[in-house]
Amino acid sequence: MKISKFITSKLFGVSSMALLLSATFLTPALAEAKGDAAKGAQKWANNCARCHNMRDPKEFSDAYWDTTVMHMRLRAGLWGVDERDILAFLQASNTPAKKVTVKSVSVDLANSGLSGEAVYKSTCIACHGGDGKGAFPGTPDFTKSKGPLSKNDAELLSNMINGFQSPGSPMAMPPRGGNVSLTDADLKAVLGYMRTTFEK
């Protein structure tokens, strides 16, 4: 009995150590790369609602999000790259938009390096969904005749550039959808895509 117990405990110890060592050394070390805010928007939308309501990206400061997302990595079983991408998105959402008025938005489609569809599918789709009806509760429905697309281009561009909270929505859309790398022309292009695809 004692021998059996000794062998069992040793086997258990060796197995545990083997698991720990393999998990530690057979997978890549912590990456130093910065997060990708555009991917982070998608991951944020896909993962946070698995357990709780989506919280406003502008609710916490950059430093607060830093620790919060680290905690959420543990809770939700996220990968390290998920943590960095989501953090980049949330911190970008806190970055104040340049004070641009509707009139001063100078748009040159020729300067947009991305198609409207590419912008939508890389950034907007996270919250607005592939069908434009909203990926989670509170996101406005683009396909409704009296929905957001009933507004004129100038107002919508201003909202996209500066950030906007729809009535009844639990949280605000961050400036440039949380992807500060998008230019005004990119936003104009994606607006065109949304009108073509979703407007009734």
Binding site: A23, T27, R73, L74, G80, V81
Partner: peptide, 21 residues
Amino acid sequence: NLFLNDYVALGVGKFLSPIGQ
């Protein structure tokens, strides 16, 4: 909790049971 790499975190102490959700 020690984040050993992008895919593994090692936690020691008292923790919520990971059985179920």
